[in-house]
Write a protein that binds this DNA or RNA. Structure first.
Length: 298
DNA sequence: CTTATTTGACCCCT
DNA sequence: AGGGGTCAAATAAG
């Protein structure tokens, strides 16, 4: 956890740096004759960064130069915050004890924007259940090709009670169907086959596994193949009004910090705008979330 | 008509 | 007994 704490400190530092640079960018734009759209974009960027810092602060990741810094007092330490933990027991371990699982946390921008939840694979919802102690129900998905190709992959999606824009996604089993060739499925498969390797390795793997040639396909994978439907359920339809960047999930940020794509390390040749573009492009990539192995497969 | 989602019931595990 | 995970019939959507 010390590593995570250090990463959070680094993240806070980077966020503060981003804020300063965005402000400078805004100031420079004021001095130049730029199209209103560019100014608007810059303004949105600035507010996104501000929100990021606020959110990070709410997790207890104060900026290094601010009082009470560095705390691992995060209520969602390493994504383990589980309102649905359900009376203590590790619910996931109740069954499928021989099945490795991989967990992701996904933040959506609004309750209506489920695109970040789409991993590009085709899933079919087969159940939904209220979980003891959880504010929101858990949805159960299995691979669309379960019957046609005997693919045993399943995933559970649950909304975080404390943060309605944050979803916990737990994958069980690897895709053995035709879409197993999909980059996202391939990454999952690799993680599921090597559950013993901690997520430090996972980070390294994420660094190297998405070949540049596949990045376009990853981006293209955003089309909603699975229309997640939490919102229509009674009581879940409230629009929280927030517009948070998808990269703000703690795990996503961890990835940003670990990954070679972490363009927040500014000043290495790439110009600021390009770096920001890459930063946000990567952040929107559904296959570059952090992976966390919940338990070994045995 | 085909395919996907919803939802109550059932099964299994602790 | 209680709770999570899955099944399958009913329903909705394309």
């Amino acid at each position: 956890m010390d590593v995570c704490s250090g990463e959070k400190r680094a993240l806070a530092s980077e966020l503060a740096q981003m804020q300063a640079m965005v402000r400078e960018l805004g100031a420079r734009m004021d001095q130049q004759d730029l199209p209103p759209a560019a100014r608007e974009l810059c303004g949105e960027l600035a507010s996104c960064v501000d929100r990021s810092i606020r959110i990070a602060g709410s997790f207890g990741w104060a900026a290094p130069d601010s009082p009470g810094s560095g705390g691992d007092g995060s209520p969602r330490s390493d994504g383990a915050h589980h309102p649905a933990g359900g009376g203590g027991g590790n619910a996931q371990s109740k069954r499928r004890q021989g099945t490795p699982c991989v967990r992701r946390q996904v933040r959506v921008t609004t309750v209506h924007d489920m695109a970040p939840l789409d991993d590009g694979l085709s899933w079919r919802k087969y159940g939904q259940k209220d979980i003891l102690g959880a504010k929101y129900p858990r949805a159960y998905f299995r691979c669309t090709h379960r019957h046609s190709q005997g693919c045993a992959a399943t995933k559970h999606v649950q909304r975080d009670g404390g943060d309605p824009l944050l979803y916990d996604v737990v994958y069980h089993g690897a895709h053995t169907c035709s879409q197993a060739a999909h980059p996202g499925a391939e990454q999952l498969r690799q993680h599921l086959q090597r559950p013993g390797e901690g997520h430090a390795d996972a980070g390294q793997e994420l660094q190297s596994s998405p070949a540049p040639a596949t990045e376009g396909a990853l981006q293209a994978g955003l089309e909603p193949m699975t229309p997640y439907s939490f919102a229509p359920a009674p009581g879940y339809g409230a629009d929280f009004g927030g517009s948070f960047p998808a990269l703000l999930s703690p795990t996503g940020l961890e990835w940003q910090l670990r990954s070679g794509h972490a363009a927040v390390g500014l000043g290495a040749g790439m110009d600021y705008e390009a770096q920001l573009e890459e930063f946000f492009t990567n952040a929107a990539d559904p296959f570059q979330w952090d992976y966390q192995d919940l338990y070994a497969a045995n």
